[in-house]
Amino acid sequence: MPRTILTDIRWELLLQIMKSTGRIYNKSEHRMTFEGILFRMRTGIPWRDLPPGFGEWSSVYRRFNLWSKKGILNHLFSQLAKMADFEWVFLDGSIIRAHQHSTGAATNFSEQIGKSRGGNTTKIHLAVDSGGLPICFDLSEGQRNDIVLAESLVEQLGEIDTIVCDKGYDSESFRVFVQRKGGKTVIARRNYGQDIGKDTMDWCLYRYRHLVENAFARIKHYRAISSRYDKLERNYASMVSLAFMLMWLPMYC
């Protein structure tokens, strides 16, 4: 029997959320299918190499692809993240190396795989709450600057109080955008020979920005996250959602 992740209590919680979408039936084989998806996320192996204890590999992959297409796996993460504490929100991005097998999707889109000095890469743009737990994320090509999707992340927040970012988000237009939403910003300024705002910035709060870095470190324990193997953007986003979902489960049970 291959090693699994979920306890009975945690599986029941996830099953209830999945059933609430009205898009799946309560089938007994769903649990091992779900465990097979998590096993692949944890190990990064090709789908064909899944241990037979999870069922036929093609059945597990088809179910994952179907759930991804329906948005069920993203829904799991978004439902669990409703407990987020929005007092402080930390933003950052992290570049993920895209494996050569993840390129060449038969679509007319980039699938958020870009060319940079490091080769084929994807970037995860993430917002975490005051406790360092993920709230929402976006994907982009690896060469995109963090500020490109900053407003998109803020738009997804349930509440806006204080946004904390590094120098990559140093933009007056972004600061104004957050202020218009009723929030305030703690963003380090690039060193252009000017000390504007450096004395009034909350450096104590800024030091807690390591919380978002810790979140990236947590999900990069999973090999299918730290290296991208999925050709389609939605499938990789579903894998990332599962990794963030596992961070939230201990808060519930």
Rank of each mutant, 00 (worst) to 15 (best):
S241I: 10
M201E: 12
A98R: 08
L73S: 00
D195E: 14
T43S: 15
Y229P: 10
L15S: 07
G131P: 01
S59I: 13
L6M: 10
K231M: 07
P51N: 07
S94L: 02
I9R: 14
I113D: 04
K220I: 07
T107W: 01
K82V: 09
E172V: 04
T7A: 09
L14K: 12
I135M: 11
H101N: 07
L66W: 12
P46G: 05
L139M: 10
R40Y: 02
R31N: 04
L76T: 02
G119T: 07
E213F: 07
I5P: 00
H210Q: 05
D166R: 12
K198A: 03
K123Q: 08
L211A: 04
R97M: 03
R190M: 10
L157Y: 03
F109A: 14
G114Q: 05
L91I: 11
T162N: 05
D166V: 00
G158C: 08
G22Y: 09
R42A: 14
V176N: 10
S78L: 15
T122M: 14
C165N: 00
S68N: 09
I9F: 08
D230S: 13
F77D: 05
F90Q: 03
P51Y: 08
M247A: 05
W67Q: 02
D230Y: 03
K167M: 12
L6N: 05
L38D: 13
I113A: 06
S110A: 13
A243G: 13
M247N: 00
G53R: 09
F109Q: 15
I45Q: 02
A84W: 09
Y222C: 14
R117S: 13
L66R: 15
I163Y: 10
S241F: 07
L66P: 00
Y192S: 09
A224Q: 14
D129E: 08
Q194G: 03
Y208Q: 15
T33M: 11
A188C: 02
H99F: 04
T122S: 15
V178W: 03
E172L: 13
S94D: 10
I196L: 15
L126H: 05
F90R: 04
T4C: 09
N145F: 06
V164A: 07
S173W: 04
S130F: 11
S59Q: 13
G93P: 08
F216L: 12
G183P: 06
R40A: 01
K27W: 06
F34E: 08
K231V: 00
R48T: 04
R228C: 06
V186W: 08
L153E: 07
D146P: 05
I96T: 00
N120K: 15
L205F: 03
F86K: 04
Y222N: 14
P134N: 01
M18D: 01
D230V: 02
D92P: 12
E56M: 11
D199E: 13
Y169I: 04
K19C: 04
T103R: 14
P134L: 07
D161N: 15
L50R: 12
